[in-house]
Design a protein around this nucleic acid. Structure first.
Lengths: 202, 202
DNA sequence: GTCTATAAAACGATAGAC
DNA sequence: GTCTATCGTTTTATAGAC
């Protein structure tokens, strides 16, 4: 998942501010996030933050991009020569059966940020881009399967949106409810769907 | 969707406060929501609000329940005698091809509130309950289809979680990105899945 | 780059009059 | 029930010293 240009080098100070923002967001939520609390997490004064960022909005936009980059780095969409396996691999990446603590926290942060997309244009653009990217990746795998003759001649766009909606919805449910094993159930059904509905009937 | 006990009667004043909170949330987002802004939307003073609610948290919890009730009222999960049609009807309710402005706003509010579930226990409980209810409704339709012999003998829990995750994910994407027609695409693929994978092969 | 100190505004919440 | 006025705190943001 190395596509568009991203900020390659964060200065040490900036990186530490991002990490502190990350921790503060997890502890207090987006609504409870303040420069004071970020500064406390950082172990420095508020002025130390304002030296690097003009306004709180400026900081949050930078943090949004920082988090989106982190997310994209964790998604490995390598492709092999078996479309079915590639699809399953993509789903495993986006919706792992077991999430470690770091994955869990990243998704909590992403859900918190994504909700801001409801009323904030800049945030909406970022998540539009992410979903566009993911849908295109899934679609290209399905298209390859159709070309190869492994898959039936289905509408790859529709199937890609279906898969994306399911993994996003399962992830969403996982981080906003206590129904923790339901994501795995949804995934099993989704993979079974790929096996029987997409594969050419033999 | 008339299940648990809900507050039947809001006083006129309380109803107006809920409506004002609704508008303020849409305008400023959850993070930008304040008693002052709600009071401005209401056209009354802050003290008028504090007469009805002890704290801001108290008001927000009440508003959460108010909104959840509104959502449940809009979902009509009547069941007929055709499981396939009942499933399609449930999906149409949860993920309409065309949303009017009121539906759009309600989902914006729901997504804003739901993101609070990441760090707030009370919010998480509410949305856990909603998803539980929806999954159970879907599951019971699938079970009926299996008993009747219309559906194959699939795992109804898994399929229900799959359907729920897909409609939730499509709604989520719809309200947090500019990819507006993708929800319809996901829905078409989901319905096609129900037609071919669930139905007993004839 | 980071500090302390501070300004100006907004915040949640209350008191007391009507 | 609703008002005005106000309290104490927290907020974003800046100034000036080091």
């Amino acid at each position: 998942m190395t596509t568009d240009q991203r900020k390659e080098s964060w200065s040490t100070a900036e990186e530490e501010i991002m990490q502190a923002t990350y921790r503060a967001l997890l502890e207090y939520g987006y609504a409870g996030l303040s420069i004071s609390r970020i500064a406390d997490e950082l172990g420095k004064s508020k002025a130390a933050i304002y030296h690097h960022y003009d306004t709180k909005d400026d900081l949050m936009i930078t943090f949004l991009k920082f988090t989106v980059d982190r997310f994209e780095e964790t998604i490995d969409t390598e492709t092999g020569d078996e479309p079915v396996e590639d699809l399953k691999h993509a789903i495993e990446e986006l919706l792992p059966l077991q999430r470690d603590e770091e994955q869990r926290r990243l998704q909590m942060v992403l859900v918190s940020l994504r909700s801001q997309a409801v009323t904030n244009e800049t945030f909406r653009e970022q998540f539009t881009q992410i979903d566009k990217q993911l849908a295109a990746t899934i679609r290209s795998i399905v298209d390859r399967g159709i070309d190869e003759g492994t898959f039936r001649d289905i509408d790859s766009s529709r199937v890609a949106e279906h898969i994306l909606a399911t993994v996003n919805g399962a992830m969403y449910g996982r981080t906003t409810t206590d129904r923790h094993n339901t994501a795995a159930a949804a995934r099993v059904s989704l993979v079974s769907y790929i096996d029987t509905e997409l594969k050419r009937h033999s």
